[in-house]
Structure formats: structure tokens, C-alpha cells
Computed example of a mutant assay.
Amino acid sequence: MEKDKAFAQKKWVLPYKNIVAIADGHGLVDIVEQSNCWGGACWAEYHYKQASPLIQSVCSYGNTMRYRVKEGHSELNLIASYAAAGIESAIVKDNTVEITYAGLGGGGVGATMSRAQAEDVIEYDITEAGGSKKSRGTIVLPRRSRVLIGVDDTDTKEEGATWSLIHNIATDLDSRNARYISHALVQLFPVPQKTQNCVSTVVEFACIDPAPLIKDFEQLLRKYTLSENTGMVVLQRFHADEVKEYATLAKSKMVTYEIAETAAKKAGVEIVIPGRGIIGALASLPYFAQPCQSVKLDLNNQ
């Protein structure tokens, strides 16, 4: 089950850039596939939804496709042109997640050789693929947890932009241990203290060991921030639902530091840098991987 680089030399194989698996420990797994061919990823999205009972939801983000699946195994009824490929199983172990894909024809190539070449695949087991064959492939990935980092108030009226600084820090820290998988700008209610647009930022990582990432992120943020009011918060959880009510409030009206501090404690959010920016940083968390929604201002609750 060693990786065979010779696969990449076959012109009908287009390797995925990377695939990560985030397990919630309660029966759900987010499979985040980073594709080198967006057309192929969109084909897979359509067919996988038709063929795979395990899939709970699918969404696209940048050049990635996210599948939320139930743990377990389900036989696929593959139908050419309609449901030609899918996710057959997701098995979560102590340190790994095993995902089995199956497909017909070109869908079988994607289910086997294309995904087996993704960067963080530990090992794989695949059948022959292509032509009219039904093919199956299992890849083994590191088991990861979700880490959300919210930041606000890093710039001044003269210089800087929080969203770009945070993206650059996250990009610099991307590694096999901590994969940087999403970034969103979160529009907040425009308060008098704002620099210009009153926007905070959330970045999402899929981690094997979160501790080094959080430490390094804090160090870089303290080094490069231009503001004395910077706030950084961290949530290590599959969902951020506990912060949604607070986030809606911060998008619709002015929120005090005390309210933010109380909300963070109640939701189990770690305040890493306790500046005034935690007001917006905390509000950014539930908008991870929702960049088209997060930029909208909600004034319904004024």
C-alpha cells in the first residue's frame, strides 16, 4: 500500500492536491478535498450526492469540495450518467480515517488513482480503474480536529488590513500537522472604534496536534500586529453553534467587551490575546468556511 509515483505519469490520472478528514468523535466526518481540476470536482459533487447515503451535505469553498458524511459503510447502487461514483465508507480510528470511494469508468479513476495521490494520504488500497470497470479505492488519512482562530483589530487608520495579515500568517503556518483550509471576512456592525470597514477574520485549520499551531500563530500575530487592541480567540470544536447567537448580535448592534468576554467563557472559547478586538474575533467564529455569507451586514436586529 505504498504510494506509487508512477501513477502520476499516466496522462489519464489527475491527482488531487490534498484530502483531509476532520472527525467530530460522535459519528460525523468532514472530508475536505482540494482538487487540481474544478470541473472534475463538480462532476463528483453531483454524482456523489446521488449515490452516497452516507453524505449529509456538500458545499464548495474556493477550489475545495466539502463532504459531511456519517461514519460507517453503505453499499452504493452505481448508475452510469446519474450516480456513477460515491463515498462507500468512512471508518474513524484512533489516529486515522479510512475512506472508501467507488465509481464507474472515469469516476472509478477519480475514486482510486487520482485520490490516492493526494499529499497527506498515508497509504491506499485500490483496484484497477478506467474503461467500463467498477473500481474501488480506500485511502488512509490522518485523523484531524477542527481549530478555528478568530482575530480582529490588527491595523491602524494609516496602515494594515486584518484579513490579509491573517491569511498570510495562516499560509505560512500551513503544514502536514495543521492544514489551513478556509478563510472568511466577517462584516460587523460599524462601531465608532472601527478602523474603516469593521471587519474581523476567521481562519480554519484541520489539525493533528493543535498546540504548536496555536502557539506559533499567537507569536506571529503579536510580532506583526500594528494595534495595541488586537484580539485573538481559539475554538477547538467541530461546530461553532454556541457562538452563533453572539455573532448575530455583533452583526446587528454595538457589543461591549464585557458581553464578548462572558459569551466566550460560556461557549468554551479560549481568549489568547485579550485586546478589545475579541469583540469581533469571537463573532467571526461561526462563519468559518462561509465567506459569501459572512461579508453581509445583518441589521435585522437593530
Rank of each mutant, 00 (worst) to 15 (best):
I271Q: 03
V233I: 07
L226M: 12
V202C: 15
V255Q: 02
Y224F: 11
A247N: 09
T248I: 02
G231S: 07
E245Y: 04
A184D: 11
R176K: 15
T262L: 03
A264D: 03
L235R: 00
T195R: 13
I181F: 06
A260F: 00
S175N: 15
T256H: 06
P274H: 12
T256K: 04
A206F: 12
T201F: 03
C198N: 15
D209M: 03
L226N: 13
F205N: 14
K253F: 11
S175Q: 15
M232V: 01
D209P: 08
R176T: 10
K244V: 05
E245P: 02
L226D: 14
P190D: 11
L226G: 05
C198A: 13
L235F: 04
V269A: 00
L221V: 06
Y224A: 02
I208T: 12
K244N: 07
E270A: 14
R237I: 00
P190L: 14
L221N: 08
T195A: 10
K194C: 06
L188N: 08
A264T: 04
V255S: 01
V272A: 00
V234C: 11
R179S: 02
Q196P: 06
T201Y: 11
G268H: 02
I259L: 11
T225E: 01
K266P: 01
A206M: 08
K253C: 10
R222W: 11
A250G: 04
Y224P: 04
S182E: 09
I271M: 05
T262I: 10
D216I: 10
P190H: 04
T248W: 06
Q219D: 13
N229G: 13
T195Y: 02
L173M: 05
F217G: 03
T201K: 09
E228H: 15
Q219H: 12
P212K: 02
D174P: 05
T230K: 06
F217S: 12
A247I: 00
L213F: 13
T262W: 05
P274M: 09
H183N: 05
A211C: 06
T256Q: 10
S175W: 15
D241M: 01
V243T: 01
Y257C: 00
K215S: 11
D174E: 08
V234W: 11
T248L: 07
A250R: 02
Q236T: 15
A211S: 14
L249P: 00
E228A: 15
H239C: 10
F238D: 00
L188Y: 05
C207M: 09
M232I: 15
H183R: 06
Q187T: 11
E261Y: 12
A264Y: 03
K244T: 06
A206P: 13
L220N: 11
I214H: 04
F189Q: 04
P190G: 06
E245H: 08
D216G: 01
R176H: 14
Q219M: 09
K251P: 08
M254I: 09
V202W: 06
E218Y: 14
R222E: 14
K223E: 14
I273V: 13
Q219K: 15
K223Q: 13
V199S: 02
V272R: 07
K266A: 08
V186Q: 03
V269Q: 04
A240T: 05
K265H: 13
